[in-house]
Amino acid sequence: MADIAAVTDAQFEAQVLKSEKPVLVDFWAEWCGPCRQVSPILDEIAKEHGDKITFVKMNVDENPVTPSTYRVTGIPTLNVYQGGEVVKTIVGAKPKAALLRELGDFIA
């Protein structure tokens, strides 16, 4: 998890919405088992494709405003933002191959 930077409610607009590159935000919580399952997979994908898409994590317990704004009701939720808009939502833990397929448009 150390490779993917954390983002807070206060930083969200500057780091995510105003980013030139697409940004995948991993909405997670410490107590969430599926979140812990998907974390190393996201680390791998970030290492392989970090030049095309930025990866950040947001702890929903510490940052309630942004998840509420984007109606994140289940975690893990992975939202891809591009041009200030949500362009892709992936809910639940998925294997690496499935995540790569889902993110194909952004990492091709």
Rank of each mutant, 00 (worst) to 15 (best):
W28I: 01
A46N: 15
N63Y: 07
A97I: 14
A5D: 13
S39V: 00
G104M: 01
A14H: 13
P67F: 06
T66K: 05
K88F: 06
F106P: 09
A93Q: 02
A14P: 00
G84N: 10
M58H: 04
K88M: 11
T73P: 00
D26L: 06
E44W: 01
I45S: 10
N63L: 07
Q37F: 05
P76I: 07
T77Y: 05
T8W: 06
Q15A: 14
K52H: 08
P34A: 10
G50Q: 03
D61E: 13
V23C: 03
V7C: 08
A14M: 11
P76G: 07
A46P: 02
E48Q: 15
I53L: 13
E13P: 00
A6G: 07
I107M: 10
P76A: 12
A14N: 14
A46T: 11
D26I: 05
P64R: 09
L78I: 13
A14Q: 15
A98E: 15
E48F: 04
E13L: 05
W28M: 03
T73K: 13
P64S: 10
Y70F: 15
T77D: 03
A46M: 03
C32F: 05
T66Q: 10
Y70S: 10
V65P: 00
V16Y: 09
A97Q: 15
K57R: 13
